[in-house]
Amino acid sequence: MAFVVSPSPHIHAPASTASIMRDVLIALAPATLVSLVFYGWAELLLVAVCICACMLTEWAIERFLQHSPSTIGDCSAAVTGLLLALNLPSSCPWWVAVIGSIFAIGVVKMTFGGLGQNVFNPAIAARVFLLVSFPSIMTDWSAPASISSAWGFSQVDAVSGATPLGVVSEGLRSGMTLDEIFAAHSFSYKEMLFARVGGSAGELSALALLVGFVYLLARKVIKATTTLSIWATIIGISMVFSFINPSSYTDPLFNMLTGGVLLGSIFMATDYVTSPMSNTGCVIYGFGIGLQTMLIRYFGAYPEGMSFAILLMNAFVPLINRFCHQPKFGRAK
């Protein structure tokens, strides 16, 4: 009888690429559910379209252009699809979602060489691409209206369909102070925390996103470094500014709960492929994202900024990796 002979190690940990990606999908489940509850069928359609379009694009490119075995089984395309769906307004037409999916997988991921090779996070890049290409569709945040009364929350901006960040940005530009804007629109932190903040599906409920974060940490899928670094930066900057001038600069809690900060910092900035390898690198990267986000929010033309900030810092990752390494054994002192 011939036995297998190969070098050590002879056993392998249970985790695989597919199991990690499945964990990310599971971590996104609470946020997805909340958005389905609030936005209903339209949102379900959007999620289904994005996931299917992403997987199909990957399959087709591998089948017809690269003639290589299909990798959709590793679930990374499904993760991209779901993240993209959660980054779109629920009113987004299906064909825009399809264009976004094809861009994410076809352009951002596959042309760089597929999983592990892409410089930019496909879902974020696609969102920014759509934002630039279809600005009116991408900013039509018709706030969840139908179910809100059943949940006992007041109805917010269902008519204007603007996000809190958009409202604030608009209001500040027209010369109102923050207090006046908040009073005029009556959104409360409680609503932001549990749901009901107008915005993209994935930004609906901070709590659902945090549950996902805890799950990812518990399963050791991600380390907290990047996320915490982003949070600390955003909180730090907004604390200083809102302390100096509370009437024109939004406060830390507002900034944490709006504009995809949680979704971005937990699920997009921590993408393995497009974030640094070392802990020091992750701290720098997170700081960069937080800083960009706040600069754009306070001084830029766009009301939010998370997507741009992540995309920009993605570009710095190779550089960060060059200079930041893990400490080696026996080299201290």
Partner: peptide, 14 residues
Amino acid sequence: QTLRRPEGPCIRCG
């Protein structure tokens, strides 16, 4: 337990 699973691309998970 021991047979090697097919290799995939490095996902840079660290």
